[in-house]
């Protein structure tokens, strides 16, 4: 019974992961890499953001309606979408002068 449950859960988890497209961004020297990330439209996206700087950063986007603090030298996950095709700028609020980027949904 427990075995069956484990298998079912594993399958469920698998399908859940398969449904989300996964993409990653890196923050280095208060800049996003890549500056533009192309993602599929109409799909939920699991965005991994890794902060390689020692200082914290806040990933923020009015267009995506997202906001998340990322501690120095750590990484995080942000779910976005499903998005309509278009350009969705985001920025690092703590270093907005240099930390600018965008998701491009196609």
């Amino acid at each position: 019974m427990t075995k069956l449950l484990t298998i079912t859960l594993a399958l469920l988890a698998n399908t859940a992961f398969a449904a989300d497209a996964e993409f990653s961004l890196v923050i280095r020297d208060h800049r996003f890499e890549p500056v533009e990330l192309i993602v599929p439209a109409g799909k939920k996206i699991k965005l991994k953001v890794e902060n390689k700087d020692a200082t914290p950063e806040e990933f923020e986007s009015h267009e995506l309606n997202r906001e998340k603090v990322i501690a120095g030298n750590s990484s995080t996950t942000i779910y976005v979408g499903p998005l309509d095709p278009g350009r969705y700028p985001f920025f690092g609020e703590f270093n907005a002068k240099t930390a600018q980027g965008a998701l491009v949904a196609q």
Binding site: V69, S74, T77
Partner: peptide
């Protein structure tokens, strides 16, 4: 912050 963020597989915050 780091510790809170790591909870719940990265969704603690």
């Amino acid at each position: 912050t780091g510790a809170i963020a790591e909870m719940a597989s990265g969704l603690g915050q």
